[in-house]
């Protein structure tokens, strides 16, 4: 697709991540995310993305509380 010539690879990657991972229409579904050294986490797309530890804490509490 023609566009600006961008020599800055980090800029291009940051833009790609912001557009494709943070934007776009949301329909439904689930996604497993592994980016760089971040461990795999499973998210419901209706949830606001949170820090990995927050998600893990929530998962632990749900298992301990027995609610699902």
């Amino acid at each position: 697709m023609p566009g600006d010539v961008v020599d800055n690879a980090p800029l291009e990657l940051a833009d790609l991540i912001n557009r494709v991972l943070d934007k776009g229409a949301v329909i439904a579904g689930s996604v497993t995310i592994s980016v760089g050294d971040i461990d795999l986490i499973q998210l419901d797309l209706t949830l606001v993305l949170t820090a990995i530890e927050t998600v893990r804490t929530a998962e632990r509490r749900r298992r301990e509380g027995g609610d699902r």
Binding site: D22, K23, G24, T32, I33
Partner: peptide
Amino acid sequence: PIRFGQSF
């Protein structure tokens, strides 16, 4: 465009 990662 759909956000990345949506499968069914």
